[in-house]
Design a protein around this nucleic acid. Structure first.
Lengths: 108, 108
DNA sequence: TTTTCTCATAACCATATAGTTATGGATGTC
DNA sequence: GACATCCATAACTATATGGTTATGAGAAAA
């Protein structure tokens, strides 16, 4: 199971409809396409397409049961996002530490 | 100073060129447009446009000095992103806790 | 079997987006 | 003043994207 690229994740989550679908799956748990379509303000094919993109990004899992498909959030797929923001902030902290060191040295 | 919306942030960071610019500002610190253009594989106007979008999302600050503009990363703007991923994961943990509770109760 | 239901895909359209070249304004240099 | 440099904006183009309606495949119901 390879890590999804941050690029795929950012792109998948950049769209408000997709983010709303993902959030709903996170908050309310597994849902069928029909249920998700009911809540979203868009057509069923649009929902299916969005779910396909979320799935490709590793953000959701699908489970077929009879004639309906259940989707659920795969929150662990957010890991690369957390890593990325962490990396960006780590450098901020590092440079902040540098600044602190500098100020300390200037104090002495 | 109002929090930038997750939507603006996700959209701003969804583009690889913009993310590369932001990463570079995070890692290497303040840069002029010229310096950034040198590294990026795109034209100077393209870089300027991307920087404009990053600025609108609150991700970068600009500082004018003579005829050049220096851009720097505003990492604190990532806060809404961290919050969002946190919220999505909190619910995961909550439901995980529920599962644990359930298993414990089943054990007794 | 026939019909109905659920979802995915196809085909299409309008708009958004990311890039380009051209240009101009402001600032520094000669 | 004349020229060069740095950046932003304008105008344009090609492609990507998000939506639609139409349709079809597969499973359940009749």
């Amino acid at each position: 199971m390879t890590q999804p690229s941050p690029d795929l994740l950012f792109k998948a989550l950049a769209d408000p409809s997709r983010r709303a679908l993902f959030e709903r799956l996170c908050l309310d748990g597994e849902q069928t396409v029909g249920a998700l379509t009911a809540g979203a303000g868009i057509s069923q094919p649009a929902v299916s397409k969005h779910l396909g993109i979320l799935k490709q990004a590793g953000l959701v899992l699908d489970r077929h049961e009879g004639r309906q498909t259940h989707y659920s959030a795969q929150q662990s797929a957010l890991a690369p996002l957390v890593d990325w923001t962490g990396r960006m902030n780590r450098f901020w902290e590092a440079r902040f530490d540098d600044l602190e060191d500098l100020l300390k040295r200037m104090d002495q």
